[in-house]
Simulated assay, not measured.
Amino acid sequence: MPIDESGGSQPEAGPAGADLALLTLAQWLSPAYPVGAFAYSHGLESAVAEGAVRDADGFGRWLDDVLLFGGGRNDAILLVAAYAAAPDALAGIDALARALAPSAERAMETELQGAAFAATTSAIWGGADAPLAYPVAVGAAAAAQGLPLEKTLQFYLHGFASNLTAAATRLVPLGQTEAQAVLAARGPALADLSALALSLTPDDLGSSAFMADIASMRHETQYSRMFRS
């Protein structure tokens, strides 16, 4: 794999390079990548405990709201902004990402995952290792490695939905097949959101997934819990 002037690696040109780019994204956004995503439920644990999410249909609706009207959509916009940003502009995007977190635990979720992602990616692929909010860290790293933006969005959003599906499998609880059916049904929405985010800017940021945000606040004082958020 060619090495760029900053010490990072760049995908090779041609079909083999395209395949390598996808494999890199699959590694970055896989459960095996050490960002600790398995430890966070994005407020879902509180929603289940309070009875707002009881079954597969309820989880599917909750996941749709978070993806299309809440953290998923905002993360996609932030990732696009970070991908296009000059290095000296990343701090402002990162500060915006942190300010958008609706609760202390959601702020911890994006900050700790982003810091872990940046540290591991820098150690293997080179580039900056400054701790950034998770979508900002992924967008900046993808740009530095020359990875395709839309594919990065698709992998990121699928990883986002997959982590929440894994949490729902344990919390609701859902059967493995039932949970995967919910995730598979989100495929068209994930593709549409990835395409839409390419045309959005930080001016389009905003969330109307109020119940999910309130659930993340209530989770901070939940008596018994499995997840950190």
Rank of each mutant, 00 (worst) to 15 (best):
A26Q: 10
R170D: 06
A84F: 12
P15G: 09
L100T: 06
L198E: 06
L29N: 13
A143M: 08
S6M: 13
D213V: 00
H219G: 09
E220F: 08
E111R: 10
A209K: 08
N74E: 14
A130Y: 06
P148I: 05
G139Q: 03
A130G: 07
L205K: 00
L63W: 00
A95L: 13
A130H: 08
A115N: 10
L90F: 04
P15V: 13
S216N: 05
S229N: 15
M217G: 09
D129C: 14
P202G: 03
G70P: 06
P202K: 00
A91D: 15
I214T: 14
V53M: 00
L157T: 03
G206E: 01
F38H: 15
A142H: 07
L63E: 02
R106G: 02
G7T: 01
G114F: 02
T120C: 08
S194N: 02
A21C: 01
V80G: 07
I93Q: 05
L44V: 11
A84S: 12
T165L: 09
L44Q: 07
L153V: 00
S30I: 00
L174G: 02
G72Y: 06
L23F: 11
A26T: 07
K151G: 10
A141W: 05
P188S: 01
Y134V: 10
A197T: 02
A118E: 00
R73Y: 06
G114Q: 02
I3P: 00
G51M: 03
T177L: 07
S41N: 10
A140N: 06
G8M: 11
A76S: 10
A130F: 04
A76I: 07
M217D: 03
